[in-house]
Amino acid sequence: MLPEHLGPLRTAAGEPLLSLSRVRQRNRLKERAIQQLLFACALISVLTTVGIVAMLVVQAAGFFSEVSVVEFLTGTQWTPLFQPQHFGVMPLVVGTSLTAGIAILVALPIGLASAIYLSEYAQDRVRRVVKPLLEILAGIPTVVYGYFALTFVTPLLRNVFPDMIVFNALSAGLVMGIMIIPMVSSLSEDAMVAVPRSLRNAAYGLGATRFEVATRVVMPAAVSGIVAACILALSRAVGETMIVAIAAGSTPKLTLNPLESIQTMTAYIVQISLGETPQGTIEYYTIFAVGLLLFMMTLLMNLFSQWFVRRYREKY
């Protein structure tokens, strides 16, 4: 067979292509430059964290130069806008905890039940319809939820609790709970789906019913992921702003009564930002002090959930 041989390739100038070194050198510089550029992009994410921490700390220092940390963390009255001024953040923290607590009480059972149903019972057709619908719940802007809480849920609840004020922790908490159901559901479901089929088959082989397999084999095997899901959802509820700003009120109060009006840390920041507080005043610095506390709380919760999964992940 006669080969159709091209012969060694040559450049336009007639030099054999073996001398590619000049082209290669230019390419090497270009490659290095591109790598530096991409590394710079990655660095931006690191700088964001540095920026958040630095900015919060620096601005909060303006607050803590006048108010002691102890007074901030343990004081039981929060009245920076009124005379006499008090700077105890506990009412805001309690308000946040109350609404977030109600939210998780709603989202945990419903989210977990959905996760069990979707991972252990639902047929493919059902999953393909239900999962996207639940994702839509997660995608609804929080102002919309706030509107719903104020104009629909609150009037509804007042039929049950006639003494309830228009702005209250319960409506906001319930609606926040609805908002985080998809988070609990899909993260728990991920944890449960990751449990290998062989464990389930072993249980079926021993005569267990589907319910028993789901609750006695799969859930325990996925418990670290489920706990992590709940902590992450709680952290989300703590950081939520608009629902509570619209529906929970703006009266910082040290109370665990969900029918009362309260104020959360996030709603306080919104309140000051909407006002005409001049820069450089202590009232202005309060939003950064509260913001710093909020950031630390959510960061600790997220780190804890990561640590928890690493430490207690079941080995199948």
Partner: peptide, 17 residues
């Protein structure tokens, strides 16, 4: 991963400062 969990209002404060 941690940045994904930071409350949106904290980003607002970063933007402000």
């Amino acid at each position: 991963s941690n940045l994904a969990g930071v409350p949106s209002i904290v980003y607002g404060l970063l933007g402000l400062g």
